[in-house]
Design a binder for these strands. Structure first.
Lengths: 242, 242
DNA sequence: ATGGTTGCCTTACGACGTAAGGCTGATCTC
DNA sequence: GAGATCAGCCTTACGTCGTAAGGCAACCAT
């Protein structure tokens, strides 16, 4: 007789899970209090018993993504135990990137938030620990964190989206005009386009660009580190324990 | 009697100028069709005779900012005539950054737009021309453009805003907790905080970070250029392609 | 039973962007 | 001049959003 115990009583976690599912499927614009409530079989105002408004909901999404990143990065870190700082950070960032690829809305949401999610402090602490252990000064480590920017969280924050496929023909038609007024750009597109391996990403392979930029920064930081290390006695590079 | 010839008849340019003034003064959130119309002494719907809706208005703002960047960068380029590629790009990017500092809302707007503003093609063409002229391959130049990312347009796209001053005391109170659970982060803050010169930016000096990141990328690109010029198979800084 | 608490709903308000159509005064044609 | 045309601005209204305020029904401990 107690077969139907009303319904699952709607909790913060259930609401957040539904929100993530909704946003993964239909994008940020679809995330509406009314819509989310409808997906949960509930009226909009009921959400306010579990979430402090829309902003609180977005904060919840951010926290969830950050938690996912932290977990992925921690797993990557154990895989990389004993490696040098480059491969350790590299694996960390690539793990974070894998999370971002699962949640394409996350980058824009992350960088639109006015407050820093609590979880990222711990995440940055781990990166910083790696740098300091490997002989970086606080000065350079600090600047490295800024230089990494969004790469540390797994996304490149492209300023402009690549063409979304539908206007590929239009882009091709523009190429003729492009070639006249923008010769270098046209030549570059022509030279690089054949190398496109993943058509979903257009002719720019984001993964390659991501790793290339990472290596550029790593190379530069390595130089900066050895430059500042020569100033002191070069004895304590090994120091592998946390 | 003929003194008042009705009023200035409201044009696209007048609307755009008012919109920029409004957004400069009160931020993006204040930019509303009704509010903008009110600032112009007009009703909301009147704007639709000169602008194709809100999206068109935002496109207009973006175009205006891009035009400002292009102009500033062109002026910088003439100053740098004859310099090497690093200083030429450096001056370009710093000129763009000066524009962004005048319009703090621009970065978020730029990266939220779904289409690429027409003006940036010309802007990238100029950067590309500099790179190609100085011996970069299209391959590396292409990746360089991606690596620069938002830096080329003058902003670092910090993922999270620095503390806005009001919660500085709260941040200080958190430092005790921070020191226990996040020792490296606490130590870095302690080590770096004394160096704060510009209190408006908190203890992170954005200008310094901006230029440091630029130099990191330039250093790395310089290596990549000479590496590809000599065509040697292996470098000491193994640059794995995965 | 009873009174409180929890969980959800109903109604309503003030934003927002914008579709549809009306009024007004300047300019043009005869 | 008189009437027609038309651009420029306004009025009204609709559907969306987030959310404040309060109601009702089922549960719980007493």
């Amino acid at each position: 007789m107690g077969a139907r115990k009303r319904r699952e009583p709607l909790s913060r976690d259930r609401a957040l899970a539904a929100a993530i599912a909704l946003v993964d499927a239909e994008g940020m614009a679809a995330l509406t209090m009314r819509r989310l409530a409808a997906d949960l079989g509930v009226e909009a105002m009921s959400l306010y018993h579990h979430l402090p408004g829309k902003e609180g909901l977005l904060d919840g999404l951010v926290d969830a993504v950050v938690a996912e990143i932290v977990a992925a990065a921690a797993a990557a870190e154990t895989d990389a135990a004993g490696g040098d700082w480059r491969t350790r950070l590299r694996l960390r960032f690539l793990a974070a990137r894998a999370v971002m690829l699962r949640h394409p809305w996350a980058p824009a949401l992350l960088s639109s938030r006015p407050t820093i999610p609590a979880g990222v402090y711990g995440y940055y602490e781990g990166i910083l620990a790696t740098l300091i252990d490997c002989g970086f000064s606080y000065r350079i480590a600090h600047r490295a964190l800024h230089a990494f920017g969004s790469l540390a969280l797994g996304f490149a924050q492209e300023v402009f989206q690549p063409a979304t496929g539908a206007d590929t023909d239009a882009a091709a038609a523009d190429l003729a005009v492009l070639a006249e007024q923008l010769p270098h750009l046209a030549a570059m597109v022509a030279a690089e386009m054949h190398a496109a391996t993943d058509p979903t990403l257009g002719w720019c392979d984001s993964q390659t660009e991501f790793e290339f930029t990472l290596d550029l920064l790593f190379d530069g930081l390595e130089q900066a580190r050895s430059r500042s290390a020569t100033r002191t006695a070069a004895g304590t590079t090994g120091h592998s324990d946390l």
